[in-house]
Design a protein around this nucleic acid. Sequence first.
RNA 1: GCGCGAUUAGCUCAGUUGGUAGAGCAACUCAUUUACACUGAGAAGGUCGGGAGUUCAAAUCUCUCAUCGCGCACCA
Length: 709
Amino acid sequence: MDEKFNKPYDPKTTEENIYSIWQESGFFNPDNLPPRHQKPFTIVMPPPNANGNLHTGHALFITLEDIMTRFKRMNGFKALWIPGADHAGFETQIVYEKKLEKEGRSRFKMDPQDLYKEIYDFTIENKTNMENQVRRLGASCDWSREKFTLDPGVIKNVQKTFAKMYEDGLTYRGNRMVNWCTKHQTSLSEVETETQEKVDKLYYIKYGPVTVATVRPETIFGDVAVAVNPNDDRYKHLINTEISVTTPIGEMLLKVIGDESVETDFGTGALKITPAHDKNDFEMALRHNLPSVEIINQYGKLNEKTGKYAGLKINIARDEVVKDLELMGLLEKTEEYTHPVPTCYKCGTTIEPRQLPQWYVKMKPLAEMALKAVQEKKVVFYPDNYRKIFNYWMEHTTDWNISRQIVWGIPIPAKICNACEHGFPDLEDAITKCPKCNGDVRKDTDTFDTWFSSGQWPLIVTGHPDSDDFKKHYPTDIMETGYDLIFKWIPRMVIFGLYLAKIVPFHTVYLHGLVNDAKGKKMSKSKGNVINPLDMTALYGTDALRMALVVANPPGSDTSLSEPKIKGYKNFANKIWNITRFVLSNTEGIFLDESLITNTADKNLLTELNTLTKDITSDLNEHRYHLSSEKIYHYAWHRFADEILEESKNVISGENAEDKLSRQHTLIFILKRIITVLHPFMPFVTEEIWKDIPANKTGLLMIEEWPEK
RNA sequence: GCGCGAUUAGCUCAGUUGGUAGAGCAACUCAUUUACACUGAGAAGGUCGGGAGUUCAAAUCUCUCAUCGCGCACCA
């Protein structure tokens, strides 16, 4: 028996050593696998953001995807797990802006190219750090195929898709209301805003002959009409007339319009219309052919059209306007009012709707394709209830704004005419005149929404359309990611896969939940309950962390992680270590020969073991990782160690030589099986022990055949 | 408002197609040069949120109520 078993298991030295053995073997790359590996199995790694350290959510997905990959590899598949790194446009820019803020600098005072270069260097540095952490967690992914979302080839492909969609009439330039964050100075898509319940005041303001209710009295200077319901007897007679309205900066003439969308029982039933600063009002103005008057600028300050209020921020202007209205006797009453307000998902700033020309993706035809694919079960969800959520979202799409006013991203390869504002793609950056009016054109300075590029990720990393990898590994098998990406990412990948490759990018979606703290509360820096996965790995070993993350953690629901739980699995790693020690020290000089297992009791033990193996195999095939991990844990500790080993002590010290020999072979057999089945979950300790198992082995445990019993 | 999920031992959670309730941690009693104290043995702890229904049989299926959580949402 090797001397190493005389000391407790030491994850630290073992893990580094084992990972480099794996890497040197070349088996992370499926092209190097032995001939028995034929049928491809492919997972695309959700590329972690290259802007910081991994968190427990990353540790969870790495664990799950590594289990999937290792299981399939052992089952003889040409298993490929493609890693990546995400430049994470908006997210990284925010991280970097915070850094700039600390240094007393601002992105708005920098040359965009300098800023881009700085963020690039920052990201590349963090990317290396991130990759090393992924290795630390045992990921058996093929680093030779790794892609970064800002690789030149990726940029080129994404830009080509944009041009193709333009040709196909699926992208267009629209001058519509956008979700504007006044802090970050960019527009945001629907999924990048978060609706928050806010308590505001609802002001009832005398508006000529009517009274209107509004939470935004500061926008009255941008009003172009008053709307009422055409069936509202109180106001019917005013429709299509002009009314004179008194404001703190003078009189205004406003048209009264009738629109079905006005609720008669909310407020006074009369609604002021501010098309430039409210989505509803904008839509209504379109219906009634009303002008739009912008009175708030991109920084959230009132402009010169508001007279004495010019230059004031929205909230201050609101107070001032209310004060003045009250002095003028125009404020009828004020009510407390709770309502949902869209905010920036990153900084919580209230979204200021603005009318801006931007690029949009026409979602309806694309969503229909995706919906159909899911209905036909071309894509299945684990757990299944997320299919309903996916469908709901696909049935309620709005056109997708893909323009972002940030530098950190893939440039939109488009030109815009200075004369007629016509926008069109220009991949070569060669067109200087507008094809419509022959006017001078300017380059679009915007970048793509990150999800526009990451939506194409499965295609990009497999080398769509003509690489060997694309032919072999697309469509991929499983997309494993967090349920929070059910809107942001999954639908976009399905859409781009169907649109560009005419086939879904994956047939299975496995969604994991959040990793919460020991009390089931969400981890957050402000609560101080964040568990850093790399700290846990250093303290208890990666295998222990992986078990703590996967046992009893079914798909689609949140799990809670605590240090004692991880520690418990460290103890388990050591238990396995000592089981091995016991077996090896009681079987000196024996090399496993199954035919020598002759005793009936021993044969029964093998039957029991085979039943368990079968059960675990079917759990793994059906994505029940939370059950399979627990079953092998339970068997190893509470059946094999507590019962079978204890009983074996008598057999081995007993008189009957045949019984003894049969039992010795049985112990090695069971140990070998436990180590094999446990490998996807706890790859390090099992690979280390594997070296010392006295039995026929093909080589590394990571490519050992999965027991088909 | 609409939708989804949850409610099981003191805490955190499993429980696949219905077949007399499980794990980890905590707490209790005992064992002590043992493969392993990163240990073992034992005991304790639950009318599975309430109610109704289907069934030979329900934590599991149906309905309903309650509470909590999450997601979505353009009545100013």
